[in-house]
């Protein structure tokens, strides 16, 4: 048995003998809001050497006190190598005409912008600069900004050049190995922004967008009207088949049920149905 030392994907996704598929990174969701297994957004917090970013926002949340950039605390990073970190939010306004307009929501978001996830927004920059000596041009708001700020041409910016950290470790020969670097992410940080306890998420967040890990609609079949019918995954009873739309419905597992009895209440779903 051999693995190419250069084949980083094979090392990341190596199925060690005896390990089921659910141990691998490709079974863990990454549309983290906040996440299930990890809040993987946290891998980007220390992307720029000297400052620490919020995992889900373009605000600087901490600075290295020895760093020349310590004055950037609570400033917002607007552009990196001319790539915006934010996009305008556009759509029809509630109670409006149906015409698409800039969706501003003062006071939190007077400019109507949204911070992109670092993973995608910085992908090209990471590829080009990470772990290299070359610094990248970063444009911050000139002042501290606790609320979202748009890219207005007349907005004063503070421009600094920062080094981009590699989130991966290197071996003694300097080659990248596919393990997250111990300085970029500390133990506990990949899970720190998840729900506490995790069960809470299953009830209040109704995070349907992780349905393959945390199902929503199960035991589905065609009903008499030619459309689907099925159970909420969280339904206490499976018959009669009904989908409850009220998250607070007593027909669904309660918080207490999740805290105490999640192991017997939450059903594994195989083939779309309750496993026995």
């Amino acid at each position: 048995m051999k693995i190419e030392a250069k084949n980083l994907t094979a090392q990341l996704l190596h199925r060690a003998r005896g390990n089921p598929p659910s141990t691998l990174a490709n079974s863990a969701i990454s549309n983290c809001f906040p996440g299930l297994e990890f809040d993987f957004r946290n891998i980007w917090r220390r992307l720029f050497v000297g400052i620490e970013l919020h995992e889900a926002d373009n605000i600087v949340v901490a600075v290295d006190p020895r760093s020349p950039y310590k004055s950037l605390l609570h400033h917002r990073l607007l552009k990196v190598a001319d790539q915006p970190t934010i996009v305008p939010v556009v759509g029809p306004l509630d109670g409006g005409t149906g015409r698409a307009v800039r969706l501003t929501s003062p006071p939190d978001n007077p400019d109507g912008v949204w911070t992109l996830e670092w993973s995608n927004a910085m992908a090209a920059i990471v590829h080009k600069y990470a772990g290299r000596k070359t610094r990248v041009r970063c444009e911050f708001t000139a002042r501290k900004a606790m609320n979202a700020v748009g890219l207005k041409t007349d907005t004063k910016r503070k421009v600094v050049y920062l080094r981009v950290r590699s989130i991966f470790a290197k071996n003694s020969g300097g080659a990248t190995i596919p393990v997250i670097d111990s300085e970029a992410v500390l133990p506990g940080e990949l899970t720190q922004s998840l729900c506490s306890p995790w069960q809470n998420d299953y009830r209040e967040c109704l995070c349907y967008y992780w349905a393959s890990s945390r199902p929503d609609y199960v035991n589905v079949e065609l009903d008499d009207d030619g459309v689907s019918t099925g159970n909420n995954w969280l339904s206490l009873k499976r018959e009669p088949k009904e989908y409850f739309l009220n998250a607070g419905s007593p027909a669904l597992i309660t918080y207490a049920g999740l805290f105490r009895e999640w192991q017997s209440r939450l059903r594994f779903i195989i083939g779309g149905r309750d496993a026995d």
Binding site: A25, S212, P215, L266, F268, I270
Partner: peptide, 12 residues
Amino acid sequence: YAPDSFPVRTVA
């Protein structure tokens, strides 16, 4: 919980 199904976008 749905071990025969996998997410569309993953940590990998």
